[in-house]
């Protein structure tokens, strides 16, 4: 060893992580995860048949972890645009708390864990649907559609709509028309929900160069399409009652909130173009969250009452 090498100073800067556990939890998008878990749970409870309660909990856990993994992979790929948008600038990667490589590894590991666990403990169909959902969100939506077309969330919305179908498949090991209806409710709800958000956040999307409907086709077209989608989702949301896997309480409730959803969309549509869109669009956005949550909550309530009555009668 030469003298020079012996006395060489190491000037490499060792960057030590300051990321807390909460930063890793933030990568899982807990708020999105909560809605995914809830709708997945309703799908599992609505399915005919029986699942061991422990395996049911494992199925829901796998759906939650799979959704979190999708969120992490989304944050890995989108860190450049997250840094530009006000709403997302403080996420762990753009804020410099976790590196992109770490997030990619984290997302892939959680994806593999959730799919393998679902396959081993629940069934292969549920595992396949979960894997497809993660792939659809991370690759089809995040990597392809999001930056290339204003129809991004129309098609990409399928990823958020799969969880009740996965929950259903966990119990029945099949995909039936009922689970497709539960899928369709979320699928058709997604465009008006996100377009209402994009109406009052369009500056952020513009800055990040994401082709959202208001930036590409204009405000008037967006508002009209929001209205059209509410006209589609409202009757589809009544189908569980029409098809007989939900009761009359759900039926009446879904008609009432569906009419209100259409009304909010109509108010947004009829507002003059160029007028400040914040108030009606924010109202519509807030109602859209209540709409989906309450529909699934009432459906779940009915199922629980039915099961309780069956137990009491047995």
């Amino acid at each position: 060893m030469s003298l020079i090498e012996k006395n060489a100073t190491v000037d490499t800067v060792i960057e030590l992580s300051e990321a807390n556990a909460s930063d890793y939890i933030a990568l899982l998008k807990p708020r999105v995860m909560s809605l995914v878990v809830f709708t997945g749970f309703v799908g599992l409870m609505a399915a005919p048949g029986h699942i061991n309660p422990i395996l049911g909990v494992i199925a829901i856990l796998c759906i939650a972890v799979g959704a979190g993994a999708s969120g992490a992979l989304n944050m890995w790929y989108d860190s450049d645009i997250d840094a530009v948008m006000k709403r997302t600038a403080n996420r762990p990667i753009p804020a410099g708390r976790i590196s992109r490589e770490e997030v990619l590894t984290f997302g892939l590991l959680l994806s593999a864990f959730s799919v393998v666990t679902m396959g081993l403990f629940v069934n292969e169909l549920a595992a396949f649907l979960l894997a497809f959902t993660i792939f659809f969100y991370a690759v089809i939506y995040t990597m392809w559609l999001k930056r290339s077309t204003p129809q991004n969330i129309v098609i990409g919305g399928a990823a958020g709509a799969f969880p009740p179908m996965i929950g259903w498949a966990a119990v029945t090991n099949s995909v039936s028309i009922e689970s497709v209806v539960l899928f369709l409710i979320i699928f058709l709800w997604t465009p008006p929900h996100f377009w209402a958000l994009s109406l009052f956040m369009s500056d952020d999307y513009e800055k990040a160069k994401i082709p959202m409907m208001p930036n590409v086709w204009g405000e008037a077209s967006t508002k009209f399409q929001i209205f059209l989608y509410t006209l589609l989702v409202a009757p589809v949301a009544v189908l569980p009652w029409v098809m007989g896997f939900a009761g009359s309480v759900y039926g009446v409730f879904s008609i009432a909130v569906g009419a209100l959803f259409i009304f909010y969309a109509w108010v947004v549509w009829r507002a003059p173009v160029g007028a400040p869109m914040i108030k009606p669009a924010k109202k519509m956005f807030a109602f859209s969250i209540f709409y989906l949550f309450s529909l699934y909550a009432v459906l779940l309530g009915e199922i629980l009452v039915r099961k309780a009555l069956l137990l009491a009668g047995a």
Binding site: E18, N20, Y24, I54, T117
Partner: peptide
């Protein structure tokens, strides 16, 4: 950095413990 490392270590320990319980209870069920 110490606080962050401790927080990550605790989370990792909890996740590993949860995994062990999951495999045990899941296999049993």
């Amino acid at each position: 950095q110490k606080r962050a490392q401790r927080s990550r270590s605790i989370a990792l320990a909890l996740a590993l413990a949860a995994f062990v319980i999951l495999v045990y209870v899941g296999t049993w069920a």
